[in-house]
């Protein structure tokens, strides 16, 4: 650390720069504007819009197929499929269930894997850093962007589902798993809750994607690795030999949102899921920090 001995000598000279630091409120405003720029760029980008459209297409596809086909025998296909003809609101729930294992992780993988590696791939990472964006700040802004997508993705499925369901099928009181019946307003609330549950479910995967994204300059690699991990976690969750590991897998509670369709609502899986995801965010956030702050940006 041969540089350290020179720091003190120049301490006095930095005084003339101190005028810049007086503008703290302006800096905060600028931090917001960086985040705003990131969100704008993420959601205005054609690829992101295509991903959200693809997700919204799932309920539309389900609804149209059910509308055009004869009655589905109960107990076959994804849960609630047979209820759709009676109540359009089930389209959203069914589509969410279908989207959980693959489609949602796929889109999150693309967005989270692209965070840092995408910038590196374009070469824009070096210009962001010399702007200077600040490495920790850049990581945070990028993660918040990924989180915003985690909010948008399940919402796209749920809202598109509710919309197409209301358009093609009657809407009425909804039967919960417990056999109790709730009004459409409450049912819509529950669907939004499920979407929120999915958002929380995907936060851990986003943190993993962010970390993987700091490892490479090739965004496709980080995306693929993130998606593969999400599939691997689900496969491991099915192996009874690894039962001790199951509660630690980030996908373990992905289907736990069924508890939100019971009466009364079971919050246990929501809490467990949130704690697990928080753990993943902490671990992979720390890893991403360690990696990115000490990384040579040579792209």
């Amino acid at each position: 650390m041969s540089r350290s001995d020179q720091v003190s000598e120049h301490g006095s000279r930095t005084a003339k720069e101190s005028g810049r630091e007086g503008s703290v409120p302006r800096q905060r405003a600028s931090s917001r504007s960086f985040l705003a720029s990131e969100l704008k760029q993420l959601f205005r980008r054609g690829r992101t819009q295509a991903l959200l459209l693809a997700l919204a297409a799932i309920p539309v596809m389900i609804a149209v197929v059910v509308r055009l086909s004869t009655a589905v025998p109960p107990g076959r296909g994804p849960a609630f499929l047979d209820r759709i003809t009676q109540n359009g609101l089930f389209v959203g729930v069914t589509a969410l269930i279908v989207a959980v294992p693959l489609f949602l992780p796929l889109t999150i993988g693309v967005v989270a894997g692209d965070t840092i590696a995408g910038e590196a791939g374009h070469g824009t990472l070096r210009y962001l850093l010399v702007a200077p964006a600040g490495r920790v700040r850049l990581l945070l802004v990028k993660y918040v962007g990924a989180v915003a997508f985690c909010v948008a993705a399940p919402l796209a499925v749920a809202l598109a589902g509710a919309g197409i369901g209301a358009a093609l099928f009657p809407v009425g009181p909804v039967t919960l798993l417990s056999g109790d019946v709730v009004q459409p307003g409450e049912a819509l609330n529950r669907m939004l809750l499920i979407a929120a549950y999915q958002t929380v479910s995907l936060l851990g995967l986003s943190a993993i994607g962010l970390f993987l994204s700091t490892l490479t300059d090739v965004p496709v690699g980080a995306m693929a690795a993130t998606i593969v991990l999400s599939v691997a976690s689900q496969v491991l969750d099915q192996l009874p030999q690894l039962e001790w590991l199951h509660p630690w897998l980030f996908s373990h509670y992905w289907f736990g949102f069924a508890d939100l369709l019971r009466q009364p609502i079971g919050w246990d899986s929501f809490t467990s899921n949130a704690m697990l995801q928080a753990g993943y965010i902490a671990v992979f956030g720390a890893l991403a920090y360690g990696r990115f702050v000490s990384k040579d940006v040579l792209s």
């Binding site: 109960p74 107990g75 849960a79 047979d82 209820r83 269930i97 039967t175 798993l177 417990s178 056999g179 289907f255 069924a258 508890d259 019971r262 079971g266």
Partner: peptide, 28 residues
């Protein structure tokens, strides 16, 4: 309430009335 994956089996007793409900095939 037996909490199955994406389904539920309920047994409810109130007084002498007993209901069994299975959400999977929607039978009571």
């Amino acid at each position: 309430q037996v909490m199955d994956r994406m389904a539920e089996r309920d047994a409810v007793r109130q007084g002498n009335e007993v209901w069994l409900y299975n959400s999977k095939d929607n039978t009571a």
